[in-house]
Write a protein that binds this DNA or RNA. Structure first.
Lengths: 207, 207
DNA sequence: TTCACAATACCCACATTTGGGTATGCACAC
DNA sequence: GTGTGCATACCCAAATGTGGGTATTGTGAA
């Protein structure tokens, strides 16, 4: 069996060496390269062409987020797993948006890390439990809002980019009616334009 | 140790009984109730008050999606795991939006199902690998588009709900310049209004 | 090197759309 | 029987969309 080739980016030399040793001493895995920062990784990673990249978020110099973005541009097929102490929303989502395929907290035991590498290699997306819950929750709609059902309908159409006229046509209403609904929606959302309303609707996941 | 109390909604009587047996015969788990459809579950589930609910999506009568929505409204703290043959985008995301905390394909072996129940009970969000990847990918931005950097900047502000004026102020431009940029953006996105542009930007994940 | 092209920045004029205000009426629920 | 959601209508001012036009800069192709 060809081992899964893994590269590392991790600034802590001890952890880096530890992971490299772990990989090289576990059948089925091999450590292609280990970098201390994104800059050096960016220069050489194309030559390593690993199957999986394990990287920290907090790095000296370029942040892990920006690093993911650039490496992903360089090697779009590479599966990147973040391995970090941070489990705050912003960093998690920024990493995922940048192109990471998995996200583990650093307390993950070695066996689980290896399992995660295998998982991502096989088309999965390993996440620590707390991260997974964060991700899932980001889909949940904020069910409750003082927006009436009819208003929701109109808001939904608005979010699809429809104009007064088009909404009126779609719901068989007059433009004036749509107007008055929109005005009430604006009051409730505390906005005063269509684009703001759409932005807010997305923020609060009302759509 | 108090066992994790699990309820089921599954229309196939064989599978239902199989799962119930599995749960009742595994230490640490117990089956609180097993329903064949959402309607009966909705009537009685508040009395069972299980820790976890395992449910199918395709059910006779009310769909699993709608079922999740209503049950979640009834018992917001309940952790719901979908267990189904479907792994198409729409159903997955609809379930998650409705309030499901996990999503397993039916080919998941019994041991993994039990593990998933434990995971969701402990605040995780168990997902089959393919589902997890789907979910993660939904965060990825479609990096490439013919939108120039400057235009992207303007589009981003637009998506935040800013008006011409505010964009002009934020970028130290004249209204006219913002205007001409917007016109080009509209051409490229094939839209002709701010809201449409915002909608398209969200669809294509350009923001 | 010159030419074309895209990106950036600015302008005008005109039609349409939108936002804010105010008002009316109906139906249903509490 | 008062409140809320829903529907309609009107006016006016401001914002936006449409369709032109000009100019500078840099990049890449011919």
């Amino acid at each position: 069996m060809i081992p899964i080739s893994v590269s590392l980016i991790e600034d802590d030399a001890d952890i880096r060496r530890g992971l490299a040793l772990l990989l090289d001493n576990t059948p089925g895995f091999s450590c292609a390269a280990a970098y201390g920062d994104c800059e050096s990784a960016l220069h050489e990673i194309a030559d390593d062409s690993p199957d999986v990249l394990l990287m920290d978020i907090q790095l000296p110099g370029m942040s892990g987020i920006e690093g993911v973005r650039r490496i992903k541009k360089l090697l779009p097929e590479l599966d990147i797993v973040m391995l970090t102490i941070h489990d705050d929303d912003k960093r998690v989502f920024d990493s995922l948006c940048a192109g990471a395929c998995g996200y583990l907290v650093k307390t993950t035991p070695p066996a689980k890390i290896l399992e995660a590498i295998k998982e991502v290699y096989n088309g999965g997306a390993p996440m620590s439990a707390s991260i997974a819950r964060l991700v899932i929750q980001s889909f949940q709609k904020s069910s409750d809002s003082n927006i009436s059902p009819r208003e929701q309908e109109i808001l939904a159409l608005l979010c699809q980019g429809k104009s007064y006229k088009m909404i009126a046509a779609a719901l068989h209403l007059s433009k004036g009616t749509v107007h008055s609904h929109l005005k009430k929606i604006y009051k409730k959302l505390e906005v005063n334009s269509m684009t703001e309303a759409v932005a807010k609707a997305h923020q609060e996941k009302l759509v």
